[in-house]
Amino acid sequence: MTTRPEVEEFDHPDVVVVPHGPMLLRGATSVQGVDGTVHDVRRPVVALCRCDKSSRLPFCDGTHKVIPRR
């Protein structure tokens, strides 16, 4: 069954940059967008747009998935 010992200390970063995807941010309570607007955050993890094409910046809306990868 389990091949890894379950006593190790795992990485659990607060900020994760996803390849060809958004930036995941854990534990934030507010995020300021490029236009200066401050958005309240109520979910434990948010995805911030990195492709700049999201319809709800600064958050990811999945649009990057339909943009050809450079």
Partner: peptide, 11 residues
């Protein structure tokens, strides 16, 4: 679900 699942799909 737009914003929530953009996170959930990666998790």
């Amino acid at each position: 679900h737009v914003e929530a699942d953009a996170v959930h799909e990666l998790l």
